[in-house]
Design a protein around this nucleic acid. Structure first.
Length: 875
RNA sequence: GGGUGUUUAGCUCAGUUGGUUUAGAGCGCUACCUUGACAGGGUAGAGGUCAUGGGUUCGAAUCCCUUAACACCCACCA
């Protein structure tokens, strides 16, 4: 068969992927083997594949394929996330293009559009993962809005509510007065603006004294309910417990103390407006202050705005400043730069506004999750540095706001009866709610239509925090065989940006609902950045088209490219040249096979000593590398693992091993060598398979006639051998002979191959210990008497004499310079060790091994010095 | 502003609890070699007072403190 000289991956990717699917290699069911399970971080259902996904899922595929080959029952559960905010925004945008406003639609009609959109684009990303070669168990594909997944979410909500952990509370939201909607933090842009800082006087009750505060938003004084000072601020110590009068309103408000106040800033006195400032609200809760909301939904003032009622906030600001000036309460104005939140969409200034939300109490729930990561070590975070971040967040955890004012998602299972927000029941279904409501409200005539379900949906993370449990239906049927077999899962691979949103909460839910951790290790990948270190983003347009890369370089090459420079937790500066390197590697492997494939066997040939030693050497080296790779994997140093294999195959296998046993042109190879080479080649393919699934599968089937069931992905993982250091060191000497000859004499007339032939013509042959480390460096190659006139020289190794050309013999002056340099260096080194060894404190404090090592270094150095001196004298 | 990190060769990064490292890899670069697997090849080489200044130690890239630059998370401020 003719094999093309370039490896083209396109042709084989689809072929092998469908072959794997047909043969069900990805599927997993519980059996007697040990399970190795990963649940995918579910991508947004309408998302498309980007670099982050490739890095993330590429890693997971490497882990899962490796586990599969090593005999585990490997199960990788795929799926997608409904992503409330993102998806709803996309659907709203799409409808807008069609001239439809969300506000014109009923909830049902809108959800109809959303599902339509989901069915059209949902799962596109999963198909893209297949292009990358991901070996997920596709039969298990889940979507967070699937009926069974939703059931789990609702049951969880009801359960937590019944445990008294869910409550209704107030929260500041970003309110866009123009669109009249709440905005997520992501939709708010902060702009630096020059505003004015107004100093306003409040009169102290029962005194002529004035208390001066500074504010950028004087209109909010209408909603003031306290003045706050720092407890240690001596300037204001006498104000403690007194009251002030708010200008214009003439309301009396208390003076409270809190360390939150920055003594240095402004006047050191802070006015507290709990209804219109995030921090003030927190203060208000702490000190039980009244909340006075002064705005309407469109940011005009309401009845609390007194004579300003109905006017816009910015108009009021001006008028109020004038009024204060008139009254003499405005002490001074100064320019002040600060950041103002602007709505991304309408560009209007956002207004912090209080709204009623659902909350989950987190403090108790998070206790086992803190222990698992920080104390017992049940769960490892890789790299460890994220433990600090985790601790910081967990120990200051706030209650989780789980409601969202959206339609796309799991609707909150609270059912109201009557107008009062406090009259509700929580139930898993409307039917159940009816029964509860009939009891609670003592009215057996209630009908389902009398109940109104809460309009809000649950935070997306409130479904994904159950993911490792719910994909195995562990909430609804806690004792089913699947959950018992697959849970807890092993590794989780995700980005550090969702450590809190997702990872921490999964750990919490794992302990709460299963009494057990959800996974043993969390591997955090870095962010993918471009060459200039910028975050990949749509706005910058610097994100390469992921699928385009696969088309250009091949899936294997892209996987290798991504892995080559992605140490755990560190950001990855992505450059297409990395993919080119991956492609080159594919091609190198391909051409190595072409070489082996072209060899003809001569049955009469016996295996040579050189080949025997080369084979023994590569077996050893492979085994050692395999152990190194295992070690790297155990520490999740995936890029190091790949680099070890890259070097093993490129440098050791191709550049040394194959060159060494390669027959000269036209000659043939013995059968035994060829057989050994093929086995070694196959072992290379196996260990590479997790990284490069397609090319390895292709060659696996070309190298030998194999049936459909004999995929490399289910082949037996190579074993390590007992270590034999001598084989390696002997061979290193052989290599040194070759390198020595080449460096020492520039062998113009001998090719690499011919040099090898030269050496291998000897029967006893390689390796030749002792001699050699010195050969390359120190011993001169002597001109041979008899053939000097032919320009040849020779050197002896053991009993053998090698002849080589000497036409480019080394210039003695050059050599003298070089040796002198080396001698100087060696002497310096020797002195430094001597100094160390004569240091008493070193001798008494350093471990024995270290001292022994240093002694050995000293004797080695001494020996070297002697040799160098001798050589110099001989010159 | 608070927190957490980062700073090592031209570039991207290792350096595993201070001691076989007078600092390593890959890519790039330079020189030479290669025209029967691969020019996307081979061999060799050059390149770093380990950000800064101090300290601890027999010994520091590694531990402590100072300063500077950058990154991320949190709060975004009267």
């Amino acid at each position: 068969m003719e094999i093309p000289s370039k490896f083209i991956s396109k042709n084989i990717e689809e072929k092998w992927y469908s072959y794997w699917m047909e043969n069900d290699f990805f599927s997993s069911l519980p059996d007697e083997r040990q399970a190795y399970t990963i649940v995918i971080p579910p991508p947004n259902v309408t998302g498309i594949l980007h670099m982050g996904h490739m890095l993330n899922n590429g890693l997971q595929d490497i882990l899962i394929r490796r586990a599969r080959m090593r005999g585990y029952n490997a199960c990788w559960v795929p799926g997608t996330d409904h992503a409330s905010i993102a998806t709803e925004a996309k659907v709203v945008e799409k409808l807008k293009l069609e001239g439809i406003e969300k506000s014109d639609l009923t909830r049902e009609a809108f959800l109809g559009h959303a599902w339509e959109w989901t069915h059209e684009y949902g799962g596109v990303i999963l198909d893209q993962l297949k292009k990358l070669g991901c070996s997920c168990d596709w039969d298990r594909t889940k979507f967070t809005l699937d009926p069974d997944m939703s059931e789990s979410v609702i049951r969880t909500f009801v359960d937590l509510f019944n445990k008294g952990l869910i409550y209704r509370g107030y929260r500041m939201v970003n309110w866009d007065p123009e669109a009249q909607t709440t905005l997520s933090d992501e939709e708010v842009i902060y702009e630096e603006k020059t505003g004015q800082l107004y100093h306003i006087a409040y009169s102290l009750v029962g005194s002529d004294e004035k208390v001066i505060i500074a504010t950028t938003r004087p209109e909010t004084l209408l909603g003031d309910t306290a003045i706050c000072i720092h407890p240690k601020d001596e300037r204001f110590a006498h104000l403690k417990g007194k009251e002030v009068v708010v200008p214009i309103t003439n309301r009396k408000i208390p003076i409270i103390q809190d360390e939150y106040v920055d003594i240095e800033f402004g006047t050191g006195c802070l006015k507290v407006t709990p209804a219109h400032d995030m921090n003030d609200k927190a203060l208000g809760e702490k000190h039980n202050l009244e909340v006075i909301d002064i705005f309407n939904a469109d940011a005009t003032l309401n009845a609390n705005g007194l004579h300003y009622e109905g006017l816009d906030r910015f108009v009021v600001r001006k008028k109020i400043v004038t009024e204060l000036e008139t009254n003499g309460d405005l002490i001074k104005k100064e320019n002040y730069n600060h950041k103002v939140g602007i709505s991304e969409r309408t560009k209007s200034v956002i207004e912090p506004r209080i709204s009623e939300q659902w909350f989950l109490k987190m403090e108790k729930l998070s206790e086992p999750a803190i222990k698992a990561v920080l104390e017992s070590g049940e769960i490892d975070l890789v790299p460890e540095k994220f433990k600090n971040t985790y601790r910081h967040w967990m120990e200051n955890i706030r209650d989780w706001n789980i409601s969202r004012q959206l339609w796309w998602g799991h609707q909150i299972p609270a059912y109201y009866y009557g107008p009062a927000k406090s009259d509700f029941v929580v139930a898993e279904s409307p039917e159940e709610a009816l029964v509860f409501a009939q009891t609670k409200f003592g009215n057996s005539d209630l009908k389902i239509t009398d109940l109104r379900q809460d309009e809000d949906v649950l935070d997306t993370w409130f479904s994904s925090w159950l993911w490792p449990i719910s994909v195995f239906n562990g909430i609804m049927e806690p004792e089913n065989p699947e959950i018992n077999y697959y849970y807890p899962t092993q590794d989780l691979v995700t980005g550090p940006d969702i450590l809190f949103f997702w990872v921490a909460r999964m750990i919490i839910s794992g302990y709460e609902f299963r009494g057990e951790k959800p996974f043993s290790k969390v591997y955090f990948t870095g962010l993918v950045r471009d060459k200039q270190g910028r975050k990949m983003s749509k706005q910058l347009g610097n994100s390469p088209n992921a699928l385009g890369l696969i088309d250009d370089f091949g899936a294997d090459a892209v996987r290798v490219g991504m892995m080559l420079s992605s140490a755990a937790g560190n950001d990855l500066l992505f450059d297409e040249s990395l993919c080119q390197q991956g492609k080159n590697f594919s091609n190198k492997i391909w051409n190595a096979y072409r070489l082996v494939d072209g060899w003809k066997v001569d049955e009469s040939l016996e295996i040579s000593a050189l080949n025997l030693s080369a084979i023994a050497w590569y077996k050893q080296l492979f085994s050692i590398t395999l152990a190194t790779v295992d070690d790297h994997f155990s520490k999740y140093r995936v890029s190091d693992a790949l680099m070890s294999l890259y070097k093993l195959i490129w440098d050791d296998f191709c550049s040394w091993f194959l060159e060494m046993i390669k027959p000269t042109y036209g000659a043939s190879i013995d059968r035994e060598t060829l057989k050994a080479v093929k086995i070694l080649f196959e072992n290379n393919l196996k260990v590479l398979h997790p990284f490069m699934p397609f090319i390895t599968e292709e060659l696996w089937h070309i190298i030998a006639d194999r049936s459909k069931a004999e995929s490399i992905m289910v082949s037996e993982w190579p074993k390590t051998l007992a270590e034999d250091a001598k084989i390696i060191s002997d061979f290193e000497i052989t290599k040194q002979i070759i390198v020595g000859i080449r460096n020492f004499r520039k062998l113009k007339n001998l090719s690499f191959k011919e040099q090898l032939v030269l050496i291998s013509t000897s029967e006893t042959a390689i390796p030749y210990p002792e001699v050699i480390s010195k050969l390359g460096q120190l011993e001169k190659i002597k001109k041979h008497d008899k053939i000097e006139e032919q320009g040849m020289g020779s050197f002896r190794v053991n009993q053998l004499e090698f002849f080589i050309p000497i036409d480019t013999a080394i210039d003695p002056e050059e050599e003298r310079k070089k040796l002198t340099e080396e001698l100087k260096y060696a002497k310096g080194f020797f002195q430094s060790i001597e100094k160390k060894l004569s240091n008493e404190r070193f001798i008494s404090n350093a471990p024995e091994q270290v001292i022994a090592m240093e002694r050995k270094k000293a004797t080695d150095a001494q020996e070297k010095i002697t040799l160098l001196e001798k050589s110099l004298n001989q010159l």
